[in-house]
Design a protein around this nucleic acid. Structure first.
Length: 201
DNA sequence: GGTAGGATTACG
DNA sequence: GTAATCCTACCT
């Protein structure tokens, strides 16, 4: 299998893809060529018929990328100060996305990220806002294609990680989503069980 | 044209 | 508990 995840892989429902993205690697390539890498440990799915989905009502300038082809980046500003990054899923006309909520940062990436001395390294990318700050993701990446050589792309699970999942030493937990006022009962959040890098419990 | 509130986080 | 901070949706 190709290492880099191709756009066609995202042409499925968000609820199918969200748990499959756990264990995959998010790669951020900066303009200077430096790469920041982290393994996804927490995701949430948002799709049609879901009142919490930003595309639930109608197409707007903000959510329009969700209405388009899969495999593109949906970034939005929340609470005026934080960014959240999503992967657009499913075919054009079926607006949906997977929110990436937490990463286990690659060791080299970790040392390259500026942070307060008091801040525990593992908490740097725990939470969608902090994750975007650590990976330097902002609205400039809105509508970017997820592909090798772009600002952002995804890579499949390593065989080692997959074996750990198959063998039961890594487990996934499925539960309800966080921070919502609508659609609170939909169990569309997944994370690595007992992972210390997951945002909230 | 005005405004309430949000897929968050940090700090008291 | 609540401030920070801004874009969007949803009024009028």
């Amino acid at each position: 299998m190709e290492l880099v995840i191709l756009p066609e892989w995202f042409d499925r429902s968000a609820v199918t893809i969200a748990p499959e993205l756990i264990g995959c690697t998010l790669v951020r390539q900066l303009p200077d060529g430096q790469q920041l890498r982290g393994i996804i440990v927490e995701t949430e799915a948002y799709q049609e018929g879901d009142p919490a989905c930003h595309a639930y009502r109608k197409q707007t300038k903000r959510n329009q990328v969700m209405f388009g082809d899969p495999g593109y980046v949906y970034v939005y500003l929340i609470y005026g100060m934080y960014h959240c990054v999503n992967v657009v899923t499913d075919k054009a006309g079926a607006p949906s996305a997977v929110l990436i909520r937490a990463l286990e940062l690659d060791r080299d990436t970790l040392v390259s990220i500026p942070r307060k001395p008091s801040e525990k390294p593992v908490k740097v990318a725990a939470g969608p806002g902090k994750l975007c700050r650590a990976m330097q993701i902002d609205l400039d990446l809105y509508g970017t294609k997820l592909d090798l050589g772009q600002a952002l792309w995804l890579e499949h699970r390593s065989t080692d990680w997959q074996h750990k999942l198959d063998g039961g030493s890594i487990k996934l937990t499925q539960t309800t989503r966080i921070g919502l006022t609508q659609g609170v009962d939909l169990p569309w959040r997944w994370y690595v069980t007992d992972c210390h890098a997951v945002s909230k419990w």
